[in-house]
Amino acid sequence: MIIETKNLAFTVSGKRILDNLSFSVSAGRRLFIVGPNGAGKTTLLRCLCRIIDDFSGTIKVKDRSIKKYSQKKLAAIATYVPQSLPIDIQFTVHQFILMARYPHLSPFSVISPGDEKFASDAMEMTQTTGFAERVMATLSGGERQQVSIAAAIAQQAEIFLLDEPATYLDYKHQRDIHSLLMKINKTFGTTLVCVTHDLNSAVLSADTIIALRDGRIVFTGSPDEIMDEKILEEIYSKKFSFANHPVTGQKLIVPDYIE
């Protein structure tokens, strides 16, 4: 198991955000985490890479408690891709991606040709080479997200913790990001842990789905299993309509808020 949590809980000013979560992910899997707003999805991701470190219970990465790793050692294994990067970053794309080599550098070392290679490969894979010298603040939302993922690739992490990587993007960029993630998963065997609101994309991309509600796991299973009226109603307190994908036959949800 590359990630294993046991009785993971997190409380902030008296409010329980995460409540006794125990689950595990094996290497190379694609785990998607869904659930209503405020269910604790983002908090969970932040615990997994120790952006939050005053949780209780244990999180093990590669069979070792993450509290026993230095932040740097942990970052060489797991990285976090936030929902969106700050919009006013004054570094160029190239500089930003090179900075992701941090876990592999000492304070004294300079950027080596090897580091440059990782950065340029990551840019090629994410099709960001074209705007390598642009300042981050000038990028569009979609471009910024591509760069964010490029940096995660350059970081050579084995686990990507992604927080709604496609939420703010248009359809084309949503699809691009998802196929990029699938490609990364296939090429490097990267373990993906991805939080999303988009059930359909979770069903299409995941091999396991966990649903959170009020900080508790209310569902664990395969994409096919979650596409069930009763289960979804339990998660979201709302009824869903379904349709089958015209080509693959995959059961998906369809919008039903039109009267």
């Binding site: 120790r50 952006i51 932040q71 970052a75 990285t79 891709v81 990067l85």
Partner: peptide
């Protein structure tokens, strides 16, 4: 950039 990114890259902030 942000503390979040710094931590994700491995800085002991």
């Amino acid at each position: 950039i942000s503390d979040e990114i710094a931590l994700a890259r491995g800085v002991n902030v």
